[in-house]
């Protein structure tokens, strides 16, 4: 990919770039038909989603162009979630947006640090309605029927014969060893979520979505992010993900509404980021103010548009569907 100074051509073909445009139109029509309002929110914000494994890219808004390093900190958004929820709290109907999201350090066959995200919120929707809408969109995009739904627990039971909500780290480590997968030496035995992620990536994802798209739902409570928890004895997160042909495409939540719970999760995540040696992210945000005011019950989903284009045209990597991926941007 090494570009000579004269090289300027896109890495995606014109055929694919036309397909991108058609799919964008199809998505807009999908949401217009369902009376979702298209909105736009800032790419640069003082707030950012606090996730252990998502790293927002910082930007300095300088006042003096002669001193570009001095100014107030903004973050390129890893998703438009916070701002869209502020709109919801301020009285928006169901909304959608097609925009750019930025995630630092993510480069690979299926990752580009800047990508196109489709994000929507169905007001009053629970997780079932949220999954139904996602399934309909997957049907429109991939034309491979509605999505099959499998719970996270059922998937682990089916492909690994274990209960992901009950098994502890050492138990999961034994399963990983039995499966013969390469395990990072640095993965601590007690990092249950780390082991679950490893098993999901190596042993489950490769099976998902070959007949039809698949929605995995009811994630471990420790991976709730901004989803609500359900159930008392073994609470699960009302979170769901869409897979097609083994590739993760979308992530949805029956959205957490409780600001105190969000504060608590933010603190927890920042503690984990600290142990990972990563900078802490700002915990107070205008989203918390919006949640204090009241977020309507809703379900929100974010879909990776570039990966979707890949799967529609059978491309093997993102550089075939993005005009100028980061190496040549």
């Amino acid at each position: 990919m090494a570009a000579e100074s004269g090289e300027f051509h896109p890495s995606a073909s014109w055929e694919v770039l036309h397909l991108r445009a058609r799919l964008l139109r199809r998505i807009r029509r999908f949401f217009e038909d369902r009376e979702f309002l298209e909105v736009e929110t800032p790419l640069l914000s003082a707030d950012t989603v606090i996730d252990r494994h998502l790293d927002p890219i910082p930007v300095t808004l300088f006042a003096d162009p002669r001193q570009m390093a001095a100014g107030s900190r903004r973050w390129l958004q890893t998703s438009p979630e916070f701002a869209m929820k502020r709109l919801l709290a301020a009285g928006a109907p169901s909304i959608y947006q097609i925009t750019r999201a930025f995630r630092g350090g993510e480069v690979g066959r299926l990752h580009n640090p800047e990508f196109t995200i489709v994000e929507w919120y169905g007001v009053e929707d629970g997780m079932q309605q949220g999954m139904q809408l996602l399934s309909e969109l997957a049907e429109v995009l991939f034309q491979h029927g509605p999505a099959e739904r499998i719970s996270y627990a059922a998937a682990f039971e089916r492909w690994l014969g274990i209960d992901p909500h009950g098994a502890d780290g050492p138990k999961l480590a034994v399963v990983a060893e039995r499966q013969g997968i390469a395990v990072p030496d640095s993965l601590p035995m007690e990092d249950r979520d780390g082991w679950l992620d490893l098993l999901l990536v190596e042993c489950i994802e490769p099976h998902l979505g070959f007949e039809s798209p698949v929605i995995l739902y009811d994630y471990p409570a420790t991976q709730a992010a901004l989803a609500r928890l359900r159930g008392d004895r073994t609470p699960v997160a009302e979170r769901f993900e869409l897979y097609f042909r083994g590739i993760e495409l979308a992530n949805g939540y029956h959205e957490l509404m409780d600001p105190d719970e969000l504060r608590c999760r933010n603190q927890q995540i920042n503690r984990l980021r600290h142990t990972d040696g990563k900078p802490l992210l700002p915990e107070s945000s205008r989203l918390l103010a919006a949640m204090e005011h009241g977020l309507p019950p809703c379900t929100g989903v974010a879909l990776g548009f570039d990966r979707s284009v890949m799967l529609v045209c059978g491309a093997k990597e993102l550089s075939e569907v993005i005009a100028f991926p980061s190496e040549i941007a």
């Binding site: 993510e106 690979g108 979520d193 992620d197 999901l200 992010a225 992530n251």
Partner: peptide
């Protein structure tokens, strides 16, 4: 070298 990462999970370098 393959970079894999569950959306909300830790990055893995295979």
């Amino acid at each position: 070298m393959n970079f894999v990462k569950p959306g909300k999970g830790n990055a893995l370098y295979k």
